[in-house]
């Protein structure tokens, strides 16, 4: 039964079986949505689109924190996201339920946070975008003690709120600013 080319026949058979098994495996193992839009799993797009949100928008805070929201929304700091200083929404409310307390900055933390943006020493900050100050020169020029924390004069959510109100009382506000209610 053995002929001069038995082993060659068997090898060819083995290779054919291997190729068939490989082809079958490729068919069976290729993910179902692969190639739906291109050379990838189409399902991966929806998976990424359905990633749970951690940050929301400032509106998400409004219904519970209407008072703070109102001050913030009409103040000079309205472009700052609530969640940047206080942390992401998802750490606070999940599925409509309260899950954790978000941090509120206090004392020197506030000063650090203010200086993060308003430090004049960092010369790269464009003047028409942000008002910068130098510490402690700013405190000196305002004739207050050098250990003053920023929020002793500036409302953190609307920095000119108290200042403009005081100016209004003293009759220092003019024109447009006066109509602004000192926000």
């Amino acid at each position: 039964m053995q002929s001069y080319n038995t082993h060659v026949k068997r090898i060819v058979l083995l290779l054919a079986i291997m190729a068939l098994v490989g082809y079958g495996a490729k068919k069976v193992l290729t993910p179902s949505t692969f190639g739906e839009y291109g050379h990838y799993r189409g399902a991966a797009i929806e998976k990424e689109a359905n990633r749970p949100l951690k940050h929301m928008t400032n509106y998400s805070c409004k219904s519970c924190h209407a008072f703070e929201w109102e001050i913030h929304e009409y103040g000079k700091h309205k472009t700052i996201s609530c969640e940047f200083c206080h942390g992401p929404y998802a750490n606070h409310v999940k599925d409509g339920k309260y899950v954790g307390r978000l941090p509120v900055k206090k004392g020197l933390e506030i000063k650090t946070l203010c200086i993060r943006c308003h430090n004049k020493e960092i010369k790269a900050r464009p003047k028409d975008v942000i008002k910068t100050i130098k510490m402690p020169d700013h405190l000196k020029s305002q004739h207050v003690r050098e250990d003053h924390i920023c929020n002793q004069c500036h409302h953190v959510h609307a920095p000119l709120r108290y200042i403009n109100r005081a100016k209004k009382v003293l009759g220092l506000l003019t024109g447009k600013e006066a109509g602004n209610e000192g926000r």
Partner: peptide
């Protein structure tokens, strides 16, 4: 040897 002993 794929079961072959043919060395012809």
């Amino acid at each position: 040897t794929f079961g072959s002993e043919d060395l012809s």
